[in-house]
Simulated assay, not measured.
Amino acid sequence: MGMVGCLGDIVFTVSDRTIETINNVTWSGSARYATHQRHGTHALTEFTGLDPDKMTFDIVLSAYLGVDPIAEVVKLWNYERGGIAVPLVIGNKGYGKYRWSVLDHKMKMKTYDGRGNVTSATVSVSLQEYLRG
């Protein structure tokens, strides 16, 4: 089994029985500036700090590839609704300075079985870096 990475207890893996990987990864950051208006001259710009980094990616979930889509989304849902910050590892590298919070998720349900259970879906996840105080 090849572990591609993980987000908390959600393991991204590739094996002969299971495929659960991420794609379309985007990592972004930004700086904060304040603009101070001055009478009769140019405004003064001041660097005030950094915003938390953000990361987005898609997770492809398929029962046909050994993954229960709903069970994995429930894990994300619990992180998001519980305000639980979790580590993010891709390959052998931990990302961020500490942990990540799940800001939101969007699940595109693609296929269902004969009883209406979701058998495949793509979940888009948005994270924000969570720093220790």
Rank of each mutant, 00 (worst) to 15 (best):
Y33G: 08
E80R: 11
Y79D: 07
V14S: 04
A43E: 09
N23P: 00
T122E: 06
K108T: 15
I22H: 01
T18L: 12
V25P: 02
A85Q: 01
K110Y: 00
L44I: 14
L7C: 09
H42L: 12
K110R: 01
H39D: 11
H105T: 13
F12W: 04
G82K: 09
Y112P: 03
V67R: 00
M1T: 10
W77L: 13
I22Y: 00
T35I: 15
M55A: 12
V14T: 13
W100V: 14
F12M: 10
H105F: 15
L76W: 03
G5D: 05
G49E: 04
G94K: 11
G116C: 06
S101N: 14
T48Y: 03
S15W: 02
G49S: 07
M55G: 02
H36C: 03
I90L: 14
R81Q: 15
Y33W: 14
M107G: 01
G2V: 15
R81T: 15
K75I: 13
N24T: 09
I19L: 14
R132P: 00
T122F: 01
W77M: 13
T13P: 04
L127H: 07
L61S: 05
H42C: 06
R115S: 10
V11L: 05
F57L: 04
D51I: 11
G114R: 10
A85G: 08
W100C: 10
E80T: 11
L50W: 10
F12H: 02
E46Y: 05
L76E: 07
N23Q: 11
Y130N: 08
R32W: 05
T45M: 15
T13S: 07
L127P: 05
K108F: 01
T26V: 13
T111G: 10
V102S: 04
A85M: 06
